[in-house]
Amino acid sequence: KFGRVHERAEGPAKILAIGTATPFHWVDQSSYPDYYFRVTNSDHLVDLKEKFRRICNRTMISKRHMFLTEEILQKNPNLCSHNEPSFDVRQDILVSEIPKLGKEAVLMAIDEWAQPKSKITHLVFCTRSGVDMPGADYQLIKLLGLSPSVQRVMMYQQGCFAGGTMLRLAKDLAENNKGARVLVVCAESSAIGFRGPSEDHPDNLIAQALFGDGAAALIIGSDPKMGLERPIFEIVTTAQTFVPNGDCHLALHLREMGLTFHCTKDVPPTIAKNVESCLIKAFEPLGISDWNSIFWILHPGGNAIVDQVESTLGLEPNKLQATRNILREYGNLSSACVLFILDEIRKKSGREGLKTSGDGLDLGVLLSFGPGLTIETVVLR
């Protein structure tokens, strides 16, 4: 008597548009150690500064975009301390800036989509910054002038794996609601975790050397309108798992001094060791076991992770080039990073006149991972 209210779509979910945005301000990685130790009044920690310089040199990052300028840091000195309470200051900045950054990426996506924004039916927003109620999803709806009846899902504090999570959720929403057009937004800022150095917490140096700011937005829907919408990728399958006891290797915690970062040297080999089982589960039903026969979007948690995944799986050097390019130009953008790589690989395919948006290949994989050593596996066509 009370059956399904919403009719299912006929076809699989497809990515119809991609937009990205970054803050205008950026830092050069080669000179960042001098800048970082100067603005945090830590130049007296000579040995720690040299250690940080070595870490920065190993990241293979060229530059990173950041909202925090020297002027902002001078006005808010607690942000430059390692342990002073600064959460309220971070909140005041990020509750406002995260939706604005997301808006810039959304406008780029809508411009490519070339359809009225009134056709957006759902919003899925993800960030690890600016936790608030009502959330960044609500603020973004107002900034864009979208209908208050847009169906919203707000996900805070997920971390680097969440780019894949957003695709998984959007696929379910698009395929189970005929005519749905799902706006996916990942907006991230390193301002939540920026803090001064400490000899007692070397993990913090890794975070300060890796993370950048950026937002990515996608429009996802099934059954694209012929002649009006141009699909870029099809989302074939999605899956999530985590490595048992992985939280002892990688975890982040909200504290009075901001978001703290805990990471062990076992993260790269542990991820590399567990990736292939995810690939087998995803691609065995499709008859694929040659990992060089697919295109790759791999989250660059750090250069060591990229190198070890490449080595463990025997990947050809060009397979992870898009990942390395984004890491070099932006650093680790947390949940937004794989979506930047997705954009990079389709643009490169277009520039080179390849037959598909995925490096000329039919199928590919998007792998994202993060806290708890959670792994998201997304098969794309």
Score class of each variant (00 low, 15 high):
361 L>W: 04
236 V>Y: 04
124 V>M: 15
143 L>K: 07
362 D>M: 01
101 L>C: 07
316 E>K: 06
251 A>R: 08
127 T>G: 07
54 R>L: 14
269 P>R: 12
136 A>M: 14
329 E>R: 05
53 R>F: 08
129 S>F: 06
268 P>I: 13
81 S>L: 12
124 V>D: 08
317 P>D: 00
358 G>I: 05
129 S>W: 12
126 C>G: 09
275 V>Y: 00
351 R>F: 01
70 E>R: 07
55 I>R: 15
148 P>S: 07
307 D>I: 01
309 V>Q: 06
93 I>L: 13
298 L>E: 08
352 E>P: 14
263 C>I: 06
92 D>M: 11
18 I>K: 03
306 V>C: 15
254 L>V: 07
369 F>T: 15
100 K>Y: 02
357 S>I: 01
301 G>A: 13
83 N>V: 11
319 K>N: 05
256 E>S: 07
279 L>E: 01
99 P>C: 15
309 V>F: 10
309 V>E: 05
136 A>W: 14
241 T>H: 14
91 Q>F: 01
241 T>L: 08
81 S>Y: 02
49 K>D: 08
321 Q>C: 15
250 L>W: 10
245 N>H: 08
9 A>T: 06
245 N>V: 05
45 L>W: 06
372 G>T: 12
261 F>W: 09
368 S>E: 13
81 S>I: 04
108 M>Q: 13
285 P>E: 09
116 P>W: 04
332 N>I: 04
2 F>W: 11
325 N>Y: 12
342 L>D: 03
125 F>M: 11
279 L>D: 09
92 D>A: 11
115 Q>T: 07
23 P>N: 14
3 G>V: 04
114 A>S: 14
111 D>T: 09
71 E>V: 03
122 H>R: 06
237 T>M: 07
129 S>L: 15
81 S>Q: 12
230 R>T: 06
347 K>N: 05
316 E>Q: 15
264 T>S: 07
279 L>V: 07
354 L>K: 14
372 G>Y: 03
333 L>F: 02
53 R>H: 15
294 I>K: 07
254 L>T: 14
292 N>L: 13
21 A>V: 08
75 K>S: 15
36 Y>A: 05
45 L>I: 02
12 P>Q: 08
11 G>H: 07
138 Y>C: 07
112 E>R: 06
26 W>L: 09
298 L>Y: 13
232 I>K: 05
283 F>Y: 03
242 F>L: 12
376 E>K: 03
356 T>L: 03
141 I>S: 09
30 S>G: 02
84 E>C: 01
375 I>T: 14
244 P>V: 02
360 G>F: 00
377 T>A: 01
131 V>Y: 07
299 H>F: 11
124 V>I: 05
346 R>A: 07
144 L>G: 02
294 I>F: 03
10 E>A: 13
274 N>C: 14
51 K>V: 10
41 N>T: 12
125 F>V: 10
113 W>A: 02
86 S>F: 08
273 K>A: 09
349 S>T: 03
148 P>T: 07
2 F>S: 08
340 F>Q: 15
47 D>T: 11
10 E>W: 02
296 W>M: 02
381 R>W: 00
254 L>N: 10
348 K>C: 06
20 T>D: 09
49 K>E: 10
67 F>Y: 14
237 T>F: 02
282 A>Q: 02
279 L>R: 03
124 V>W: 05
144 L>E: 02
98 I>T: 05
338 V>S: 14
335 S>T: 12
1 K>N: 09
79 L>K: 02
56 C>S: 08
348 K>T: 00
53 R>E: 05
317 P>V: 08
341 I>R: 04
305 I>C: 11
113 W>M: 06
331 G>P: 01
284 E>T: 13
63 K>G: 10
296 W>F: 01
377 T>F: 00
41 N>Q: 13
254 L>M: 02
121 T>E: 02
2 F>V: 10
59 T>C: 08
27 V>G: 03
363 L>W: 08
228 L>Y: 06
272 A>T: 09
314 G>W: 03
344 E>L: 04
297 I>E: 08
21 A>E: 05
326 I>R: 08
141 I>L: 06
314 G>E: 05
297 I>N: 07
134 P>M: 09
257 M>S: 11
318 N>I: 08
331 G>C: 15
68 L>M: 04
8 R>W: 03
23 P>I: 01
260 T>S: 14
236 V>E: 10
328 R>I: 06
123 L>E: 02
65 H>W: 00
291 W>K: 02
54 R>I: 00
91 Q>G: 10
292 N>A: 09
73 L>R: 07
343 D>T: 02
256 E>P: 01
4 R>T: 02
128 R>P: 04
289 S>F: 05
299 H>K: 03
362 D>A: 00
238 T>Y: 01
51 K>R: 11
69 T>E: 09
53 R>T: 12
315 L>A: 07
355 K>M: 06
95 V>E: 13
146 L>N: 01
138 Y>G: 02
235 I>N: 00
331 G>T: 00
25 H>G: 10
97 E>V: 08
108 M>I: 10
331 G>E: 12
143 L>I: 14
13 A>E: 03
243 V>C: 09
117 K>A: 10
320 L>E: 03
8 R>C: 12
115 Q>M: 09
322 A>E: 11
122 H>V: 02
334 S>L: 03
64 R>K: 08
95 V>I: 04
308 Q>P: 04
275 V>E: 02
330 Y>H: 07
45 L>G: 09
104 E>V: 05
39 V>F: 07
137 D>E: 10
112 E>D: 11
262 H>E: 15
333 L>I: 09
322 A>V: 09
47 D>E: 11
283 F>I: 06
36 Y>C: 12
378 V>Y: 05
65 H>T: 03
254 L>H: 14
379 V>E: 14
331 G>N: 01
246 G>Q: 10
271 I>D: 10
321 Q>T: 06
250 L>A: 14
141 I>A: 12
103 K>I: 03
110 I>A: 05
24 F>E: 12
52 F>E: 14
357 S>G: 02
254 L>I: 12
137 D>G: 11
370 G>K: 15
296 W>L: 09
45 L>S: 06
351 R>M: 01
139 Q>K: 14
367 L>Y: 14
131 V>W: 12
314 G>P: 11
303 N>Q: 15
9 A>P: 02
274 N>D: 13
131 V>A: 15
11 G>P: 01
358 G>P: 10
100 K>N: 12
115 Q>V: 08
24 F>S: 00
126 C>Y: 12
88 D>M: 14
363 L>M: 08
144 L>K: 01
347 K>Q: 10
374 T>Q: 11
111 D>F: 06
241 T>I: 13
274 N>K: 11
290 D>R: 04
230 R>W: 09
36 Y>V: 01
1 K>M: 00
267 V>S: 09
103 K>G: 09
348 K>L: 06
57 N>P: 07
259 L>H: 14
374 T>P: 15
295 F>K: 10
